[in-house]
Design a protein around this nucleic acid. Structure first.
Lengths: 159, 159
DNA sequence: GCTTTCTTACTCGGATACCTACTGTCCGAGTGGAATAGG
DNA sequence: CCTATTCCACTCGGACAGTAGGTATCCGAGTAAGAAAGC
């Protein structure tokens, strides 16, 4: 159970975009974002597509186009970013093996209530999601040292 | 981020083994367990190896050998089972991309404290693990309808 | 000088290979019980 | 009848293919700015 590397990239990009938005609102090309963190440009573009499809970012085509946050950073949580990249479905999926093999002929009445294992797994995942939903991009921006954010603004201003 | 199917199998097997242990303590062959839930026998065996390596089950070789729980069901949590199959490492791994590209030359002093994204991710995973650790195999056994457990015992007694 | 048109450079977006890791399978080493031969 | 030995069936265990999904890449469609030509 390994989370896609794209989640880390997407989260950092969202934070970076909010740093830059505080100065100006011009969109930033995906290629520039990629070189800022030394990432493969084309593949990062794919992750940005996912973010855009989820309504987290919006992409501006044409010259001087690029990507920018589609809504305030305070309303974008880490849960949103993870769901956008990894997909909405749960990590654990119950395939109801309890109804196969030795129980294949039993009446479905015995399995009316959900499987206890699936229930516990789902409960744990909900706790995970709840925790992720409590951290927004704005929170992460607020926790960033001023020096680092200023450095990023400086980097994107020139050339 | 999809969890291995083996986790579901392993959890169900642990519950089943505890159902059977309440009657007698003889080990159960992996092949029998596989047919009980209609699973590929050889691959289930691989998962059982992982459980044994983790100290959750112990395997008895030779004729009339098989697999049985190595410790009381109350001391085996879902967290243990997940860790045994999926491995102990976290789903999210921080690769410190913030120190690359535009920040590759900056002093490491700026990045002394851990990345906020990694911190939030880790916090969420801990909540997930904590929740999983609160459900033991014994809890799952206690929540099982008596009718189903009896059926399983009956299935394994004959032949 | 102003408006319209055209060119052009730049952007995203989806379709296309590659590669790791999960899934599935096989055969050999090891073990313990049971039958058997001997005392 | 008891004991030691041999045999054998059955078990787990690790080594070996197949496949789905994440990783990486490329090229084409679309757009908006800017230059240029016409009025």
């Amino acid at each position: 159970m390994r989370m896609s590397e794209g989640v880390e990239w997407a989260a950092h990009v969202c934070v970076l975009l909010d740093w830059l938005n505080q100065g100006e609102l011009t969109p930033v090309p995906a290629g520039r974002l990629a070189e800022a963190y030394d990432l493969p440009a084309a593949y990062l573009g794919k992750q940005l597509q996912a973010l855009t499809r989820a309504g987290i970012t919006e992409s501006v085509p044409g010259r001087y186009g690029g990507v920018r946050l589609a809504r305030p950073a305070a309303s974008v949580t880490l849960m949103d970013v993870v769901a956008a990249i990894e997909g909405p479905e749960d990590a654990f999926s119950c395939t109801e093996i309890r109804q196969q093999g030795m129980n294949s002929g039993n009446p479905p009445r015995d399995f009316a209530q959900p499987c206890g294992i699936a229930h516990a797994m789902r409960s744990a995942e909900l706790a995970w999601r709840r925790e992720l939903a409590e951290t927004s991009i704005a929170d992460l921006v607020a926790a960033t040292p001023t020096r680092v954010a200023d450095g990023a603004r400086h980097y994107f201003q020139r050339a």
